[in-house]
Computed example of a mutant assay.
Amino acid sequence: MDTLLKAEIRSDRVTKSDLKQMRDHGKVPAVVYGKKVPSTPIVIDEKQLAAVLRRNPHSIIEMDIPEVGKHPVMISGMQRDSIQRHLLHIDFHQINMDEPVRTTVALEFTGESPAQKEGGVLTAVLHEVEVRCLPNHLPTAIAVDISGLQLGESFLAKDLRLPPEIELKTDENAVLATILVPQKASEEAEAMAEEANADNAGKAVEPAAETADQS
C-alpha cells in the first residue's frame, strides 16, 4: 500500500447546503465502514482522491481516520453528477489483509496479432474482469497477450494466465477481445458491445463488505 488518504470526520446530520459547501471547498463527502471501523461519515480531499482514481480505483488504500487510526480500505461505491460527472459521494470499505476480497481488475492488452498486419481489427469487448484473492495478491492490471490470435479468433476469460492465488470470478467463456475482419469490424463490435451491456444491465454494485467472503 503506497497510497495514503487522510480522512476528516464530518457530522452525520448535514443539509444539502452543507454538502454543497463541502464540495465547493474541494472536499468529497464519504463514509467508511467495516469490521474494525464503525460506519463513520467523513470527507476526503478531492485532489488526493482524484489522484487515487487515476492510478487505480480498485487499489488498496491506507486511510488515516481521526480517533480510529490507519486501516486498509477499498472503494465500494461512487456517486457522480449525471451531467458533469463530478464526485458527489464515495463509500470506503475497511478490509482485513488476511481475508479474501472480491473486486474488479483492469485488463492490459499486450502484443500484436499477425492478423492485425493483414488488416484485422482488434476489438476489446471487456476492459476488466472480476477476481477473488487476498488483498496482497491483488494485481494492478492483468495482461491479455493477443499475439497468438488469428483473424476471427477471440481471447476468452479462461485463456488468462492467472497465478494460483487469484481466482477468476468472471464467466470463463466471456469474450475479452477478438480480431475482426475489417469490413465486419464495425457491425460485430457494436453487436458485442450491446451484448456485454445487456449482460451487465441490472446487476447491483456489491460493496466489498458483502462480497469479501463469497466464493
Rank of each mutant, 00 (worst) to 15 (best):
V105Y: 06
M78G: 05
V101S: 01
R54S: 11
E62G: 11
V68K: 15
M97W: 08
E67S: 15
P100F: 00
I95T: 03
E67F: 09
I90H: 02
Q84D: 14
T103K: 01
H86M: 12
K47H: 10
E62C: 11
R54N: 04
M97Q: 12
P72T: 13
N56Y: 05
M63I: 12
A51H: 05
M78N: 10
H58S: 12
N96W: 03
P66K: 08
T104Q: 14
I75T: 11
D81E: 12
H58R: 09
R55Y: 00
V68I: 15
P100W: 03
E62L: 14
M63G: 08
I83E: 08
S76H: 02
H86I: 08
I75L: 08
R54V: 07
T104I: 13
K70A: 14
D64V: 05
T103P: 06
V52C: 07
V101W: 02
M74H: 02
Q94F: 10
E62A: 12
Q79H: 01
V73H: 04
Q84P: 00
F92W: 04
I60R: 05
T103N: 01
A106R: 04
P66T: 09
L88V: 11
T103W: 02
I83C: 07
H89P: 03
I90F: 06
G77A: 08
D91S: 07
E46V: 07
I83N: 13
H93K: 03
M78I: 12
E62I: 13
D64S: 15
E99P: 06
D64F: 06
I95L: 05
P72A: 15
I83Q: 11
H86G: 13
Q94T: 11
R85F: 09
H86T: 13
F92Y: 03
K70H: 13
G77Q: 00
T104W: 10
S82I: 10
G69Q: 14
H71A: 14
D81L: 04
A50R: 14
R85N: 13
D98L: 06
P72K: 11
S59K: 10
Q84W: 08
S82Q: 11
D81T: 04
G69E: 13
Q79R: 07
P66E: 09
S76V: 03
L87F: 06
P57W: 00
Q84F: 12
A50W: 04
I65E: 05
M63W: 05
K70F: 01
M74R: 01
F92R: 01
L87A: 05
E46A: 12
Q94D: 09
N56M: 07
A51R: 12
L53I: 15
Q48W: 02
I90W: 02
T103H: 00
L53T: 09
R55G: 00
N96P: 13
L88C: 03
D81H: 12
E67L: 13
V101P: 01
I95W: 04
P66L: 08
F92A: 02
G69W: 15
E62F: 11
V73A: 14
V52D: 04
N96R: 14
N96F: 08
R102Q: 13
I95M: 03
E99I: 12
N56T: 06
R80D: 06
Q84K: 15
I60A: 10
E67M: 12
I65C: 03
V68T: 15
P100A: 04
I75R: 06
D64K: 15
L49N: 03
N96V: 11
I65M: 04
V105F: 08
P100C: 09
M97Y: 09
I60E: 01
N56I: 06
F92M: 05
M78W: 06
Q48A: 14
I83D: 11
